[in-house]
């Protein structure tokens, strides 16, 4: 079967969407996670429950939100609760299956930095900060992370651990008293990385079609482990591409002139 041409961002979004099971309760960040989660909802997972930290539960936006406060989220939600309630009853209460995060920087154990580059007290670059991520990373049963792969983002050592992934590896999460799985996949524009079952170090387990190992290594700031049985990611199918492009076109039309 011949496949349609697609972009690196499209296969990233489609690969991430495929990891969301129908019916999963998913706590979604704005941007790439929100796009992938809505693609899942509009394709194979119509009953996925999307929770946004601003309060909407069961949001079904027809266009992608500009921000977490977008009226489209509450207008299409099953219910909209307060932000405090989202983090207590729903997240801390253990009702979230998947926490779906983006990241500015990530290390080999999927620890995330969204706080600062350089020293905390004298930052070279001040990033936005934690938002909901530290507790999403701790309380969601598992975590998916989506970001574009580059030396700038995939660094040997992050300057600040905003949200813990697998810490220093092995049983670090357990030693911290965390009973949830933490990051189970990192989905990028080049492939999919998953933690090694013992060391918890991120390992390239799937590479997108047409991407070379050299390309992936060149976009990673540490000596990346490659799985013995490296898979090739399934290319986006016609329906996935159609739905994704349609969603993006609807979103662009809704914000035309902005």
């Amino acid at each position: 079967m011949t496949t349609q041409p697609y972009s690196a961002d499209e296969i990233m979004t489609v690969s991430a969407a495929r990891l969301l099971k129908n019916g999963a309760v998913c706590f979604v960040g704005i941007g790439l996670p929100s796009k992938a989660a809505n693609l899942a909802r509009l394709t194979h997972a119509p009953d996925v429950v999307l929770i946004y930290e601003s309060g909407p539960i069961g949001a079904k936006p027809s266009v992608l939100p500009l921000s977490i406060g977008d009226g489209e989220l509450s207008a299409t939600a099953d219910t909209t609760v307060s932000t405090a309630e989202i983090f207590t009853y729903w997240l801390q209460g253990g009702r979230v299956d998947i926490g779906f995060l983006g990241a500015a920087q990530i290390d080999r154990f999927a620890n995330i930095n969204t706080t600062v580059i350089g020293p905390y007290d004298k930052p070279k670059v001040r990033l936005p900060g934690a938002g909901g991520a530290p507790e999403i990373g701790a309380s969601a049963k598992e975590v998916l992370i989506i970001l574009r792969q580059s030396q700038k983002a995939f660094v040997d050592k992050i300057d600040f651990t905003t949200t813990i992934g697998h810490g220093e590896g092995y049983d670090h999460r357990v030693r911290l008293g965390l009973s949830t799985k933490g990051p189970t996949s990192v989905i990028t524009d080049l492939g999919i990385l998953t933690p090694d079952k013992d060391s918890r170090e991120l390992t390239l387990t799937s590479i997108h079609p047409g991407v070379t190992l050299d390309q992936v290594r060149a976009a990673t700031g540490w000596d990346l482990k490659i799985a013995d049985r490296l898979e090739v990611t399934g290319a986006p199918n016609a329906n996935e591409l159609h739905v994704l492009r349609d969603l993006e076109a609807r979103t662009a039309a809704a914000h035309k002139g902005d």
């Binding site: 207590t88 934690a130 530290p134 507790e135 905003t162």
Partner: peptide
């Protein structure tokens, strides 16, 4: 974090001096 600060407003509204939550495990914050 959001969980903390939203809880801190709840505590403030409740006349309590502190917020109690499960948070920041492993975070440099």
């Amino acid at each position: 974090s959001h969980a903390d600060l939203s809880g801190a407003y709840v505590a403030g509204a409740s006349g309590l001096p502190m917020t109690l939550l499960r948070a920041y495990r492993g975070s440099d914050l």
